[in-house]
Amino acid sequence: MQQDAENLKSGTLIEWLVPLAFIVCAAWVTWHMPAFILDWGVYTEQLDEQFTRLDVTPNLPVVMGEHIDIIDILALLGLPVFAILGVMTVRRAAMEFEDWRKMDRLAVFVGRVTMMLIVLLTSVMLYEVIVRYVFESPTLWANELSLWLAGFVFLCSGLYAMQQRSHIRIFLIYDMFPRTMQRVCDVISTSLIALFAFFLIYGGYGEAFAKFNRWETFGTAFDPPIPATLKPMVLFVVALVATQAIINLISDWNAEPVIHSAADDIDQDEIDRLKKSVGADEGGDLDVAGGAVQSTKTGQE
């Protein structure tokens, strides 16, 4: 319990710098992925021309193969380093799901990365609005970059939502069952998720590998590799979601039955604000489901 209380103190600087550093390394490796494909995969003249056009540091000496420079190597090595560091340092915030284990740290870290991606996405959109409507000089990359980041946000947030048990669930019949039948329903739902992930990966692997191997781009002026990155990312995240669903099943197996109500959608901070707004912060009891406040002082009078 003491460890859980310490975990509530989240939001330290390292928890935000590490995901940001991970995103920087991932962005560099992704943008220079043609260099790794050319040296470690299949060489094509089209990909070579594309890398020549996209290379951010063309004047740096090559340290591996014919295309990979020192920054490429450092960024590639930084990915597992910052991922491990982020998983080790991430802590549960006060509003997050309480019963989490060490196996949940990866999903929570992905959630932190997703939050930073949302900040970057908002910054890109804000920058585009300013330069377009204030300076009348719109960019060629903001729209595609926003779509690209939004795709990663959509995918990564699914894993975080699964770990937080915040995905859409219908409890009308589930709450009526005894705990034994609830476990049966949990096994069935988790099995369906794993089965869906298996067939999606099995059916989509060939296309995803082909798009990645030729580093398929979006075909616009900015021409980002959205198909080459998002298609494999879909399969990767779906596999993680299925794994997290199994972890949830194991973690919640001995949990006590939970009766769901309308109050589940309101956190404690919001309840406190509601109490304060109606003057019930001194001895008042707020019935969230019914929306009524019953004062203990009134009963005494």
Rank of each mutant, 00 (worst) to 15 (best):
D272P: 04
V129P: 02
F209P: 03
K231P: 00
R112K: 10
V131G: 03
T190F: 03
M1R: 15
L54M: 14
I247K: 01
T12D: 13
M103I: 11
S157A: 15
L74N: 14
P224W: 11
R183F: 05
L200A: 08
L117Y: 02
T190L: 02
K275D: 06
T139Q: 04
D55M: 12
T243A: 15
K9S: 07
V187P: 04
E144Y: 05
D281Y: 12
T30P: 01
S295I: 04
V29H: 01
S277Q: 06
F135Q: 11
A280K: 03
V42F: 06
D269C: 14
V153W: 04
L74H: 08
G111K: 00
L249I: 13
T57N: 05
A142Q: 03
E6K: 03
L8F: 15
T180R: 13
D104R: 00
Q300T: 08
E136W: 06
A208F: 13
S261M: 09
L117F: 04
A197R: 02
A142I: 07
K231W: 10
T57Q: 08
E6G: 06
T44V: 05
W148A: 00
Q50G: 06
V110W: 00
V24N: 06
P232Q: 10
S157I: 14
I266Q: 01
V110N: 01
V131Y: 04
H32L: 11
A35F: 06
E216R: 06
S295H: 10
Q50V: 10
M116E: 05
W100G: 05
P34I: 02
L249Y: 09
A150H: 09
F199H: 11
A210Y: 09
K231Q: 09
V293R: 01
S10G: 15
P80G: 05
G78I: 01
V237K: 00
K102I: 15
D264R: 06
L54G: 01
V238M: 15
V278T: 08
Q2I: 05
T139I: 08
Q163T: 14
F198A: 09
L172M: 09
I118R: 01
I266V: 09
D175T: 12
V238Q: 02
K231S: 11
E216Q: 05
R91F: 03
I271T: 11
E256Y: 13
S277L: 07
G78Y: 05
S191M: 12
L13C: 12
I14Q: 10
I170G: 03
D99T: 10
I168C: 08
D69Y: 10
V18L: 07
F152G: 02
L106D: 03
K9F: 06
P34V: 04
F51R: 00
I73Q: 04
F36M: 14
C185I: 14
F97G: 00
L235V: 12
S146V: 02
P58W: 04
I73L: 14
Q164P: 14
R165C: 11
M181V: 14
P80M: 06
H260I: 13
F36H: 02
I84F: 11
K276Q: 14
T139Y: 07
I259S: 08
Y202C: 12
K211G: 04
R214G: 03
I226D: 00
G203K: 07
P225S: 06
M88L: 09
M115D: 05
M181Y: 13
V81T: 08
L200Q: 04
M233F: 12
E301Q: 15
A289Y: 10
V110E: 00
L76E: 07
A242Y: 02
A142T: 11
K9H: 15
R92A: 00
L200Y: 06
I250E: 07
D69K: 00
A27T: 11
